[in-house]
Design a binder for these strands. Structure first.
Length: 112
DNA sequence: GAACTGACTGTAA
DNA sequence: ATTACAGCCAGTT
């Protein structure tokens, strides 16, 4: 029985699904980190996987991906990525302070 | 299946 | 505060 794997669909990845669940639960106006999301999803040490999961997330899912930043509140998304500006724009739209590629501490939440 | 690639992190200078 | 870099590890080539 040959099994088709169509185009590897990120939605079939259970790890991605866990990550998306966690991200979806971040409240508006608050921000968490890749590492924190990973731990909350039961995937300690896999911060990079979180980044990948967000990149691969279907648009129609409307995940609040912009509420995830690097350790210490730094925006890690490379300048080459058009998404970087978009992230900052969306954060500010939720009244999150973004200055010099950083977000204010008071907006950080701990998911653990 | 080895090599490469990061939307990462912590440490060190 | 900044920069550099090794360690990290699943997904892609």
């Amino acid at each position: 029985m040959v099994r088709f794997k169509a185009l590897r669909d990120p939605r079939d990845n259970p790890l991605f699904q866990e990550i998306w669940n966690v991200v979806a639960a971040i409240p508006r106006g608050q921000v968490s980190t890749y590492g924190s999301v990973a731990r909350a999803a039961g995937l300690p040490g896999r911060a990079r996987l979180v980044g990948r999961a967000l990149r691969e997330s279907p648009k129609e899912m409307m995940l609040p991906w912009h509420r995830v930043v690097g350790a210490g509140g730094r925006i890690v998304l490379p300048p080459a990525e058009p998404g970087r500006r978009e992230q900052i724009r969306r954060l500010r739209a939720e009244k999150v302070l973004v200055r010099e590629g950083r977000i204010g501490r008071s907006f950080m939440i701990d998911l653990e």
